[in-house]
Each structure stands twice: as C-alpha cells, then as structure tokens.
Design a protein around this nucleic acid. Structure first.
Lengths: 357, 357
DNA sequence: CTGAAAGCGCTTACAG
DNA sequence: CTGAAAGCGCTTACAG
C-alpha cells in the first residue's frame, strides 16, 4: 500500500446546493432559540416545555426539516453509522449477512455504508483508510480475503489504528483476525448434520466436496469428518469425490459414486445445496429415489433446498443472524477479541427420513 | 406515514471517542497554519509551496491523519456520498445492480450507503427521510415497490423535496417514477432474443412463464410477443404454460408442454435461466436432446447458464452497468426525467444452434 | 505562498 | 425551562 496521504479524496465538484431547512430556520419559525429548538427535537431531552416542543415540532414538520447528520457528527464526534467491508455483494452468502446487517442497523438507528473489497486485502486496507474519514461507529468485515503476510499485517495495523481512535471492528466470517468475531458456524454445522443423520439411523456417508479448495469447503469437510469419527461412522477412501461446486458438478460426482455400486452407502452428503440437488437428479437417473434408498443432504440452505422434491435436508447457518449479531457486538462496547458462534440449525426434510434398524 | 419529526434519530449513546488526529495536529506537527495544511492536503490546490506540502504530507502520514468527512461536509455543504435504497439485497438482480453502484461509486470517489426498503413504499418514504439527513449527493432507488396510490404520491413528494434541496434522484429499474431512470431492459432484451432466434431459423416458440404475475414477467412476455408478432412468428394458445419460477417449475412446465407432443415447436423460451435449465432436464427425460431437436433459451443470465451442458442461450441485462450508469447519471447534473436504456446482450450458446432450412 | 478569521449546522455546558 | 456563547473540524475568501 502506497496510499499517499496527498491523494486527498475531496469531493470533485462540490456543487452549491440549494439550501435545506436548517435548525435556525426551524427556531425562527417557532420563535425560539436554536438551543431550545435543538432540545425540543431531541426526544430524550426533558428540559423543554411541552408548548415549546409542540411549536418546534410543528415548524419542523412544516419546513420538512431534517437535521444535518454531518453537522451533528462534527459536534458530537460520533457518527451513527456502521461501515461494512464486503468482498463481493453478489455472493449469496455475503448478501445474506449484509441483509442481517442492514436490518439490525436499522433497528439500532444506524446507517450502514458499504464498500467492496474484491477479496483482496490490499483493497481492504484502502477501504479502511477511506472509511476512517467517516468516523463510523464500527467497521464490519465480511467475506473472505487473501493477500501476502505483509498485507495482512498492514491490514491489522490499519484496523488497530482505527480502534485506537475509538472505532470498533467486528469480523463476520472466519476467526482469523484479532478482533471481535461472529463466526459462521460451518464446521459446527457440518458436525451437527452428521450427528443428526446418525440419530436418524444413517451410518455410511459418502462425501461430495468442491474440487477447488477453500476455507468453506475445508470447514465443511472437517466438521463432517470430526463428527463421523466421534460417532464411529466409517467413511471409506473411495467414498469422497470432488467436483465443481455447481449443480452439474454434484450430478457428475454422484454419478461417479453410484457407478461403483457402493452397496454400503446409505447417505450422500454434499458441501452445498446446489451440489446436493444435482446429486438427487443423478440418483434418479440411476433408478434410485432420493430419500427412499439412499439419503441426501446439502449444506448452507441458502437457495432452493425447499423447491425440490422431496425437499432437501440441509443446514441453516443463520447468516442473517450473523450479520445482525455483528452489529450488536459493535454496539456493546469494545471487546478484546470476543467470539460469538451461533448454533446452526439442521433442517431435516424429505431426503433423509428416519432409517429403520 | 406518520413519521413524527419528534422522533429524532440522535445517536443513542454517543460514546466519547478517543481522539483521532486532527487537521490542527497535522498543522502543528508540520509547523504551519491550519489553512496551509488544508491546502497542502488538497491535491487540486496550487497555492502551496512544494516544501510546505512535503512537510504537511509527511506529518499527516506520521500521524495517520484522515480528514474528518463530517466536518468537511458541514463546511462545504456537500457529502461525497450516494445513498442506495434497495428493496432486498438478497435478490441476485439487485445484488448485481448494487455491485455496479459500489464499483462506480468507488471510481467516482463517492461512498455508497445502503438501506433496505423491503419492497414497501412506506418503508422507502421512511428511508428517504432518514437519508436526507446525510445530505447525500444522490439517492438511487433500486428494485420494485408496491403500495397505495397515496403512498406513491407521498414518496414522490418526499423525493421531490430532496431534489429541491439540491439532491439528485435516480431510479434503476422500471421507469415508473418521475425522475432520471436507468431502465433495466427486460422487454427489449426479450425482443432481441426472439429476433436473434428468428435469425437463427427458429419459427415456433413455446413460452414458459412464471405463474405469479410480476412486472418483470410481464415485461419479458411483452417483449417476446412484440417481436414474435413483428416477425410473423406464431405462438399458439396452448404453447404458453405457467409454472413456479424455479428450476422444478421449469421442469414441470416443459414436461406438460412435451406431453402434448407439439410437433410444430422448435424452441422453448423460459422467463428465467433457472426455469430454462429445468426445462432442459425435462426434455432429456423425454428423450430429447436440448439444442438438437428443440432449442432452449433462458433470460437474465444471472446465474449458472454457463454451467449446464450444453450451455444455455440467454440474455445478459448488464445489470452491473445499470448500477454504474445510475451513479454516473447522478453525477452529470440535474436532469428532467432523463432515461437511459442499455442494449441488452443476447448470448447465443449451445442450446440454440442455427437451424437449417 | 501564507495565516488569521469567519463560517458551515449543530449540541451542550453555563447562567439565568 | 430558556437563551447567548463556545466549540466540533474543517474550508475559503481576504489581506498580506
């Protein structure tokens, strides 16, 4: 990062705006001082007579007055704003978290501001610098990031600087930065899924996992294996197959699995719902009814698990709650690398009926 | 809307922040006046000696100085910010537009702020009021909205008020509000698709459309019918079927179509890519190879059209460009209900090879 | 090229 | 309960 402080980001062409109504306008219209008007407009202030308040509110309403948030912020030093750094808003996982952030910010009286970081730590550093200007109450980092160790250190330093100015940093995702974190419970969710399937009578899972490595894929697989191991379920060498992380990838993977006529299998676990749905089709094409002979379960439950027949067992990671919790964490004072992890919800549906005996 | 102006949204618990470095700090560290420091930090200002500038930049760097955007905004009256009102960020269409907004805002030196409106006009009104406090350079409205005529009038009034304060309003979506609009070219895209298929030799389309009515579905169907009509393609009564807007919906719809053994059909048009992909599976299950016998085309090209085999012909609506254009429109001075509509891009792929004769 | 001063729209002790 | 005044961190004429 060679962000020269000279590169000041002053607004390019500040056009002289026609004036919006101002506190002074309201005060004059109501025939009181600015101080009184300010107090009357503050619902928390008790030092106003009700008649003054009424006249001020009336004037404000008439003038369409909206307080100038910037002026207020320079006066109080605080901005009712939370800045969200998101790697890619188009990713449905991020979108879900962001949705939770927006919702919770709304109820907490905060405005949410976003910037894209494109998964690159160097972009994040740039964005943190830019956002620091806004003096937001907190910054929330979402999604994944990659970059050199040097970059990572710079990012931490920049964020550290921000916290020293009184800002709050919260990570929503993986626990990989030394700040308060709301962990997306992938690993735990995968474990819980396997445990639930065990309870339902399943003993021999096959795994369909993405061919490209990622933290998410790894966490899913770790969670599955951990639970399987703990419960004494055996997963044979050849029962894990890799494929592109799409519906068709799931189809191919399942077709390969089934071609081996693996009589011992009783359930197929896929790392995403899309892959699981593809696997269901492959099973049908092989003459098997998903759920009747072999069970199927997906993961993440972001899209479409309920739209298929039978509907697909999956794991709800409560991503919107993750986003909301990140805002709440930011609001509950500075913490020293606190860590929140929700219980993921295993959603048992038609593809994994209870197995007899 | 009975938003009482009394309901002031002052920050709940303004915590006293440890101080961030201030212009005064930088000036003192550099041994110059605040005025000189300010000028040195402004890359556009020429009224600084290079030695002063160097000392100031050095001091700023050392102190990790970031200008206080709020203070700047109260001084200049303008905020380098664009506010985006989005019905639901989880909708991939909106996410794509929002992505474009974020990108373009970044290159234009603007910060993008978001609020969710949940498709409800009354929510939009509330959000516009709230956002007005931020004095953003522009507000961009994305997604769909519904509400009473009264609400709609109130929304227009509230937006009108905002423009009178110097704010810019841009709509990204349907042209249904009296402000500058970047139109999502659904209708035009559907027409272009049909025209291209005609050129490829297709003459008898069947239509798979969502069973629930929506503006998007209507625009798609209107576009298809308009072009078909113009080109003399006939669409028979029974060749339009309705189904849920999912992959399985598309499967069912296509199955129903094919059950009638409609020898005259040469291409199936679906209102979304997901439905088209489902239809492809149905065709295969009926012993037909998509593209070989009957062609298939989807719409919107948001997700997965390239992941299937053969890959799916679709229409790229350039949604990210729509978002970017909205920002640019907001930056090019006030307009009187200007209207921009991009040429959608028909993406011909494997499911619609040229037909001979 | 530089600095002292005024002003942006607020809020908040401080005296009444 | 109310108002005059100071101050938040900037920018920008205005004089040098």
């Amino acid at each position: 990062m060679t962000t020269d402080p000279a590169t000041d980001d002053r607004s390019p062409s500040a056009p002289t705006r026609p004036s919006a109504a101002t506190l002074r306008d309201v005060a004059e219209a109501a025939g009181v001082s600015k101080a009184s008007a300010s107090r009357a407009l503050d619902p928390a202030s008790q030092y106003v007579s009700s008649s003054t308040r009424a006249r001020v509110l009336d004037a404000a309403e008439r003038l369409g007055y909206r307080p100038n948030a910037s002026a207020r912020a320079t006066t109080t030093g605080a901005t009712a704003m939370v800045a969200v750094l998101v790697s890619d808003i188009r990713d449905p996982y991020n979108a879900e978290i962001v949705h939770g952030v927006i919702e919770q910010a709304g109820v907490s009286g905060l405005v949410a501001t976003f910037a894209g970081t494109d998964h690159a730590i160097d972009d994040e550093i740039r964005v943190v610098r830019m956002m620091r200007s806004l003096r937001p109450h907190a910054m929330i980092l979402t999604g994944t990031r990659s970059g050199s160790t040097v970059s990572r250190t710079s990012l931490e330093a920049e964020l550290e600087r921000y916290t020293q100015e009184g800002g709050r940093v919260v990570v929503a995702g993986d626990d990989e930065l030394p700040f308060d974190t709301v962990v997306v419970p992938r690993r735990r969710g995968a474990s819980a899924l396997v445990a639930e399937l065990f309870r339902l009578g399943y003993r021999s899972p096959a795994l369909i996992r993405p061919d490209r490595d990622s933290a998410a894929a790894r966490q899913w697989e770790d969670g599955v294996l951990e639970a399987a191991d703990r419960l004494g379920m055996r997963i044979e060498r050849g029962d894990t197959v890799r494929a592109p992380m799409t519906r068709d990838g799931g189809y191919d993977a399942a077709a390969r699995l089934l071609a081996r006529r693996p009589e011992h299998l009783d359930v197929v676990l896929a790392a995403t719902d899309a892959m699981a749905i593809g696997a269901m089709t492959a099973m049908r094409d092989a003459g098997l009814a998903p759920g009747a002979g072999i069970g199927v379960a997906g993961f993440d439950d972001v899209v479409g698990a309920e739209d298929v027949t039978p509907d697909l067992t999956s794991v709800d990671l409560a991503l919107a709650r993750v986003g909301a919790a990140a805002v709440e964490l930011a609001l509950t004072g500075p913490g020293d690398h606190r860590r929140i992890e929700f219980e993921p919800r295993v959603v048992v549906r038609g593809t994994t009926p209870a197995r007899l005996g």
